[in-house]
């Protein structure tokens, strides 16, 4: 496979995944804030800022945010590089350049997705369409995931797309944890209430893991159980651990070295996987902020190494 095309497939996977997370974050935060149990969580400004921060790293402090604008920017503004519409556009462009390698079915679904987003009525979205739009985006991405799994040979093409998807997923999960962690802090301060905050439920819903969490712990989510579940539980398909396990799996399709060199992607991935396997949530709980930063750096480095080793053209 061509290195350039591999790079495009990797990013196609990342952008599909990114579009999904942004859409769901938008949806869950907005709608759960409407009847949140405390005033802070209902604050428009807090919610809007949280959504914008999640999509875009550079949000100025102390600026009054306009709801319509924020929602439009995140979803359909083609001038904003972080918008969902741009994610879908880029994903489709990447698919275009690898059109001969991916299945007709997958391409057709991406293309349909693209036309759906492109033709979405902006005025309707601003007034009534938030729920409809975000739900449809997540449905489309679910279809794409199905097409990726079901219509591609599970060979290198598949491995590369899955690497992109899983690295992006863990990155987005960590970012969402980060955003909600800050929200919970703002909402409840540092005490017992912080640990029981409704924001943990929102967080789990943002990553479609609330039901799974309830089944696993059989009690309302707390800070501890939520973090443990989303970071370390290998059986939760949205957890960081699960994503890293998959990344490790797929890198082995590309790298045939049994003992990968110390500066290779496979080595770093293997090492990270081993570390997480034996981490306990108690060791993270005290220093969540540090942990998040470290984790993001590590994921970034993984992507860098993969790109350098395999996509260099």
């Amino acid at each position: 496979m061509l290195a350039r095309v591999a790079n495009n497939l990797f990013w196609m996977g990342r952008y599909i995944e990114r579009a999904e997370h942004i859409a769901r974050y938008l949806n869950v935060n907005y709608f759960s804030s409407l009847d949140a149990p405390n005033e802070q969580s209902q604050s428009r400004q807090l919610v809007l800022r949280s959504m914008l921060c999640m999509a875009d790293d550079t949000v100025p402090e102390n600026v009054e945010l306009n709801e319509e604008e924020v929602l439009y920017d995140i979803a359909l503004n083609t001038d904003k590089s972080f918008s969902i519409i741009n994610c879908v556009k880029i994903a489709r462009e990447n698919a275009n350049s690898a059109r001969d390698l991916i299945s007709t079915e997958l391409y057709e679904s991406i293309n349909k997705f693209y036309h759906y987003v492109l033709n979405y009525d902006v005025d309707y979205f601003k007034n009534k369409g938030l729920y409809d739009f975000t739900v449809n985006v997540t449905e489309f991405t679910a279809i794409l995931r199905g097409k990726i799994r079901g219509t591609l040979l599970h060979d290198k093409v598949y491995a590369i797309i899955m690497l992109g998807i899983n690295i992006e997923r863990s990155t987005q999960i960590v970012r969402i944890i980060h955003a909600k962690f800050l929200d919970a802090k703002k909402a409840k301060g540092n005490g017992e209430q912080f640990k029981q905050s409704s924001e943990w439920t929102t967080l789990l819903k943002c990553v479609e893991s609330y039901d799974m969490n309830r089944r696993h712990y059989r009690q309302p989510p707390t800070k501890l159980t939520t973090l443990e579940f989303l970071i370390l539980n290998p059986f939760c398909p949205r957890s960081v651990m699960n994503s890293i396990n998959q990344v490790a799996n797929h890198i082995n399709t590309l790298s045939t070295d049994k003992y990968p060199a110390k500066d290779s992607a496979a080595y770093l991935i293997g090492k990270t996987q081993a570390e997480y396997k034996f981490k306990s949530i108690e060791s993270i709980e005290g220093e969540v902020a540090d942990f998040i930063e470290e984790m993001l750096d590590c994921l970034w480095l993984m992507a860098q190494k993969i790109e350098k080793e395999y996509f260099n053209y």
């Binding site: 496979m1 061509l2 290195a3 350039r4 095309v5 059109r99 001969d100 390698l101 053209y313």
Partner: peptide, 14 residues
């Protein structure tokens, strides 16, 4: 054409 022949579709820079 690339797909129907099962061959790579390349650009000059590849």
């Amino acid at each position: 054409l690339a797909k129907s022949m099962g061959v790579e579709l390349v650009e000059g820079r590849d």
